[in-house]
């Protein structure tokens, strides 16, 4: 099987969908001619294959980028636009929060807005807080948006293809560190359904719910804990909205213990939502208080030791699991 980074997997998904459907086009800052010339990046080579008519370099105008997606989707195209980094979403937030998310509802269900907004996210590059802040909880809070945060290259490819074919606005968040962590990606065409979590590791003692880059941390901690006789089940959400409650509840009812792990800062983070769902719907099965392992409530620091401390690691997760097992 081919080994690809997540950026390459995204690239394949974009290429396949653009080949399949002439309505699909991409736009964003440097999606055609980029300052970064690396085959590991998501839009590498697409300009050459599809031309400037469908691979559109835009000005540094996030509101216009997101807005053109809304308008073009309303008029029958399938835009896939890129907001370079998750924190830059704030510059496009009116178009995403007030328009993309709400216009279908405001049309009384008569119009659809099939668009994808891709964003890079994640700490680990020393880029500092205005490039590294994970804001998935902000978009997850907006009814009308679907939110995907894949953890593996294979998932990214199948989910992005599904997102492009979906009738609703999808926010697709790619952790940049994963661009450089190759993994197996099937060669034959496939889709992964939106809204389906995956149990990435089966276990019986405790459920760790996580997504995106933190899956690697969860798997590492699970391996460590296995050596100590603690059997961890790892649920990879993959999609935050719509949330696959069934898989979460099935797992937590089985293990009776829950730890939620995400990189984003703690207060108002999506872990709170997961805990609330389990509290409301599986309380009777739970044997211990829940734990959250998250980034601290600070802007992501650039300093290497501080940034390393910011990003949750296996040591912190192992400690949290041991508190409740």
């Amino acid at each position: 099987m081919q080994q690809l980074g997540m950026g390459q997997a995204v690239n394949q998904a974009l290429r396949e969908e653009m080949q399949r459907d002439s309505r699909v086009f991409i736009a964003g800052e440097g999606v055609g001619v980029s300052i970064h010339d690396s085959p590991m990046l998501p839009t590498a080579g697409l300009l050459g294959e599809f031309g400037p008519g469908r691979v559109k370099d835009t000005p540094v105008s996030e509101a216009a980028i997101a807005g053109l997606a809304v308008g073009a989707a309303a008029a029958g195209l399938r835009p896939v636009v890129e907001i370079m980094f998750n924190p830059f979403f704030t510059l496009a937030s009116d178009m995403i929060v007030n328009h993309a998310a709400k216009l279908r509802y405001l049309s009384g269900g008569k119009s659809t807005f099939p668009l994808v907004i891709r964003m890079k996210s994640g700490a680990g590059f020393g880029a500092g807080c205005q490039h590294s802040h994970n804001l998935e909880a902000w978009v997850a809070h907006c009814p009308g948006l679907k939110v995907i945060m894949p953890s593996t290259p294979a998932d990214a490819k199948g989910l992005l293809k599904a997102a492009i074919r979906d009738e609703d606005p999808v926010i697709f968040i790619e952790d940049m560190m994963l661009y450089f962590a190759p993994g197996p990606v099937p060669e034959e065409p496939y889709l992964i359904p939106i809204g389906k979590a995956e149990v990435k590791r089966e276990g019986s003692d405790v459920t760790v719910v996580t997504w995106s880059k933190m899956l690697g941390v969860a798997m590492q901690a699970a391996a460590q804990l296995a050596e100590e006789g603690i059997d961890v089940e790892v649920v990879d959400l993959r999609t935050l909205v719509p949330l696959d409650k069934e898989t979460i509840l099935q797992s937590t009812r089985k293990t009776g213990r829950l730890v939620v792990l995400h990189e984003a800062s703690r207060t108002g983070g999506f872990a709170g939502e997961i805990c609330a769902v389990v509290m409301e719907e599986a309380f009777g099965s739970m044997k211990a208080p829940f734990r959250r392992v998250t980034g601290p409530d600070i802007p992501v620091p650039a300093s290497p030791p501080l940034e390393r401390f910011y990003i949750p690691d296996a040591t912190k997760l192992v400690a949290a699991v041991k508190e409740i097992v």
């Binding site: 509101a63 308008g71 073009a72 008029a75 195209l77 009116d94 178009m95 328009h99």
Partner: peptide, 22 residues
């Protein structure tokens, strides 16, 4: 109908882009 001041303009750009592309 748009209750955001200026909110219609980027969408108009997208509608026009779609017409031009098609």
């Amino acid at each position: 109908g748009n209750a955001i001041v200026g909110g219609g303009l980027p969408i108009a750009v997208g509608l026009a882009l779609a017409d031009k592309m098609q």
